[in-house]
Design a protein around this nucleic acid. Structure first.
Lengths: 342, 342
DNA sequence: TTGTAAGCGTTATCAG
DNA sequence: CTGATAACGCTTACAA
């Protein structure tokens, strides 16, 4: 049953009249200005409550010049169905909204996938005070677009194809080291890394480097299978597994630089009769929820999503306020499930 | 390399000066007003382009009284990690943003999980022209909150615990019928439905009814396993499977009213050595992407997400404009994967 | 077809 | 501590 209150426009002038004060006093009282005496504030808040007054944000923003809003741009593959977006980015979206909200900001969300959609002028239009860009790095046209935004644009992004733009990332080095050592300790020694070395994804490179370093330290030669570009991540993983089997070279574990590749590989190997985790161990990266549903469930390296969201928002707000950002690396932890030996 | 353009505030007044016309002519020319002559329009647009002019949305909105924004509220379980939100809702979120964008609207996204967060006064604050509410029906406090919003609030929601609020839903009856007949045709006869009959989820009830009706039509008695409340969906599914096995009564197929329950049941049955789909067939509802990763991958009933998003946005805009909404049921289709016999 | 001028509902400055 | 009053940058009658 909807309440019997109705929506009627009430201005600060109405409240002023009701409380017997001036309109500017209402504004100050409601904004928590320290110069207002307690009795007046009480009268004002009471009147505001009674009249069901709410500030008109547009008027407030017009006057203030700030919006209290951040824009969140999700870059998709061109023409991609929204349900096929890597769930990792949805988790990130959720954490960003939460982090923004905790700091008193709203989040304007825009999905962009092709040139007609690319748009980053939220500040000029006074729709937002800054912008966070997340989503697939495979849409290079999109990243090229955002790279070229005018100076003074407050923004940051997750991942980032290169170091010319502001970024926040997972602690990929620690994560890859963690993953590789996890395998080594469990007596997997012929560990192959499935990655996209040609992709403009800096994070993947970092993960490979972490793996390679950990391998060398343990006296093993790193080995790499490159995925084909232009395909969905899971298909890339599946084909990499095929290539690996076809190569004839022995292997007993796979470190895939993202969960979707890992799941694709897992599926292929299972289909070929490999027993996971006994015969082959598999570990992914990103800790997506879907990893819990595979057989066996996927062991992975999971970033602290809440921290990731916070770091992005913190860094953006720092840019907006001209201060120093806090950190750029989201901590990671091992998420041990069933695709590696106990 | 960021462009050498900088962000500097340019007003319509500046453009007017540059184009040698009045400020109101600029506004009209840029808004596409028919009364402006082609030569003037050209001069104006050219000047605007050169000066990199962008309308201040706050000023425009203040004047117009409309925002061109819709609010999207995602209801979560209290304290729930954002990454544990049912991926179904994220897909829906994506489609809603797309549908809104296609109609010239922006989307303001808010995640709400507990009383301190509940907030639906986007219209009064002039932050949005209306609101779409999606997310878990298990958070009854949240739905109670939204049910009580003042009259004149433009809003609609997905699912909806009851019929007192405006809603858009899947075509649950067709979906359940489709699912049940799919099983029957494949010679599964002892089909059990796993559902939450006590939950305030109307959609689940409709799905059960569709199943029961299809069973009766085929001369079979419908059979129902109720899940325990208060748990995550997958755990509910798992426990329902346990209860089913413990009951001792024979069964050869399961129709779960949502994919996450289906996946939980699938996991449990596999662990107990049942062979899926030969011995037991399983079918879910919602077509979540994670269903592709289970072994075997989950057969499901998938709603047309794009349509779902469009219907929600259409209906909301209809309310805003005081016209009639188009439809309330998102069409569904069978998504045949591997958890039912070929 | 274009210009003039009146708001939209705030916040912030400046007196008192 | 509070009240006038001037912006904020646009859209839209109303006039010309």
């Amino acid at each position: 049953m909807p309440s019997d209150r109705k929506i009627i426009r009430v201005t600060s002038f109405d409240v002023a009249e009701a409380a017997g004060v001036s309109q500017s006093t209402v504004s100050r009282a409601l904004a928590g200005d320290a110069s207002i005496s307690e009795p007046t504030r009480l009268r004002v808040t009471e009147a505001a409550r009674r009249l069901n007054y709410q500030v008109d944000e547009n008027a407030a923003r017009l006057r203030r010049g700030r919006t209290g809003t951040i824009a969140l741009v999700m870059i998709c593959r061109e023409g991609q169905d929204r349900k096929d977006i890597n769930p990792f980015y949805f988790s990130l979206l959720g954490s960003i909204c939460a982090a923004a909200s905790a700091r008193g900001y709203e989040t304007l969300v825009a999905f962009q996938d092709k040139a007609e959609n690319f748009w980053g002028h939220f500040q000029e239009r006074r729709k937002a005070d800054g912008m966070i860009v997340i989503g697939t790095t495979t849409n290079t046209a999109a990243w090229d677009y955002f790279r070229e935004l005018p100076q003074g644009t407050h923004w940051t992004c997750w991942g980032s194809p290169d170091n010319t733009m502001p970024w926040v990332r997972s602690d990929n080095l620690s994560g890859a080291t963690l993953a590789t050592r996890h395998l080594l300790v469990r007596n997997y020694t012929r560990i192959v890394c499935i990655t996209s070395a040609t992709s403009p994804q800096r994070q993947f490179q970092e993960r490979y480097e972490g793996y390679a370093e950990a391998m060398r330290q343990a006296g093993h030669e790193p080995r790499l299978i490159q995925v084909e570009s232009g395909l969905a991540r899971e298909e890339q993983g599946r084909r990499a597994a095929i290539a690996l089997c076809d190569s004839g070279e022995p292997f007993d574990a796979i470190f895939a630089v993202c969960d979707e590749m890992a799941l694709g590989a897992l599926k292929e190997l299972t289909a070929r009769g490999y027993s996971i985790p006994d015969q082959v161990g598999i570990i992914g990266f990103d800790g997506i929820r879907a990893g819990a549903w595979s057989t066996p469930p996927l062991t992975s390296v999971e970033p602290d999503f809440q921290m990731a969201g916070s770091l992005l928002v913190e860094q953006l707000l720092a840019k907006i306020n001209g201060t120093e950002g806090s950190g750029r690396r989201a901590p990671v932890k091992l998420l041990v499930r069933g695709s590696t030996r106990a």
